[in-house]
């Protein structure tokens, strides 16, 4: 074990080279619906239990199923209304279980990125080969069912190993060459994209995917009231928009259909979307598009700035 993951460099949030998003936009705004499958009775990982009680653990299992049966369509209709293309963090087994959902997302040209096979299978305890196999399975599944070469990764249930990001990039390189895997959503250290160190030396970045704005963190962990969640989203946007006068920022709303799409929570989410999208100079986009644009335009200048600011 090491005291620091050594995945990125310290890079102070002041006097950074200015980022300008396409068409002069200041904030790159993306919504990342997690479309997940939780198993009723998965094998028990020795490091983390999937459910707090014996099988069948109804409260946990059934509300997540609600997300797919009921919630998905509600969030999709809301995002359609506001012209937002989702960037889906996908439990890729869902391609087999619920192909209807995949077809709807595909129809709308939403982006799919890998979130493992099931959200009840954790990376903890896997050998390097096992993690590589799991990641490869997830990337191939997305390709087979959607035709998309997945560019991003969010580890299933945020369960990581020291090599998670290396393996994602390496597997992608084996399958599709060096240009496809671009970004991870697993790191929460910044409000702008940042380069990530991989053992291969290959270019790879972190795209901000805010855990603080994540509806499950807000509702289930911090237990905030729905209207307060809506206000948090607006406040988060306001400050990122204000700061983006200096340099472009990224705002992400990670969602879950079993949280944000409950009837008593949709109003707060819709009000926040309406408010945010009422601003000019925002780029409503996807994870892949942010990563691609940053790679093409700012990766090198960012690396140079990081090097220049490194205190010897």
């Amino acid at each position: 074990m090491q005291e620091d993951p050594k995945l990125y460099d310290y890079w102070p949030y002041q006097n950074r080279p200015k980022i300008t998003w396409p068409r002069g936009a200041r904030v790159a705004f993306w919504v990342a619906p997690n479309i997940e499958y939780y198993e009723l009775d998965p094998p028990t990982n020795p490091h983390r239990k999937a459910w707090p009680g014996p099988c069948p653990f109804l409260p946990g299992y059934s509300i997540r199923d609600y997300g797919n049966r009921v919630g998905h369509m509600r969030q999709m209709q809301l995002l359609d209304k506001y012209g937002v293309r989702g960037s889906i963090s996908l439990s890729t087994a869902l391609c087999d279980h619920h192909p209807e959902i995949i077809a709807q997302c595909k129809e709308r040209n939403w982006e799919f990125f890998s979130h493992g096979i099931y959200n009840t299978r954790y990376t903890y305890g896997m050998s390097e080969q096992q993690e590589r196999d799991m990641i490869k399975d997830s990337i191939e599944t997305i390709y087979r069912h959607t035709g998309q070469k997945c560019a991003g990764y969010l580890a299933p249930a945020l369960s990581h190993s020291e090599l998670t990001l290396d393996l994602f990039a390496e597997v992608s390189t084996e399958l599709f060459g060096d240009e496809i895997a671009l970004y991870t959503c697993d790191l929460f250290h910044d409000d702008q994209p940042t380069p990530v160190h991989l053992r291969s030396g290959r270019r790879f970045i972190s795209v901000p995917y805010s855990l603080e704005m994540n509806d499950t963190i807000a509702y289930a962990v911090h237990k905030v009231e729905p209207r307060r969640y809506g206000q948090m989203l607006k406040d988060n946007f306001d400050r990122l928009y204000q700061e983006s006068e200096e340099s472009g920022t990224v705002m992400c709303i990670p969602t879950h259909n079993y949280q944000v799409s409950c009837p008593h929570r949709l109003k707060a989410f819709e009000e926040a979307l309406e408010y945010i999208l009422g601003h000019s100079e925002i780029w409503v986009t996807t994870g892949r598009e942010i990563a691609t644009y940053f790679m093409a335009n700012y990766y090198d200048s960012t690396m140079a700035d990081i090097d220049a600011k490194r205190v010897q």
């Binding site: 094998p43 020795p46 299978r121 305890g125 896997m126 050998s127 390097e128 096992q130 290396d166």
Partner: peptide, 12 residues
């Protein structure tokens, strides 16, 4: 990094 990794049973 990543040394000392064991493995899960294959059912995982």
């Amino acid at each position: 990094k990543g040394c000392n990794r064991v493995a899960l049973d294959k059912e995982h």
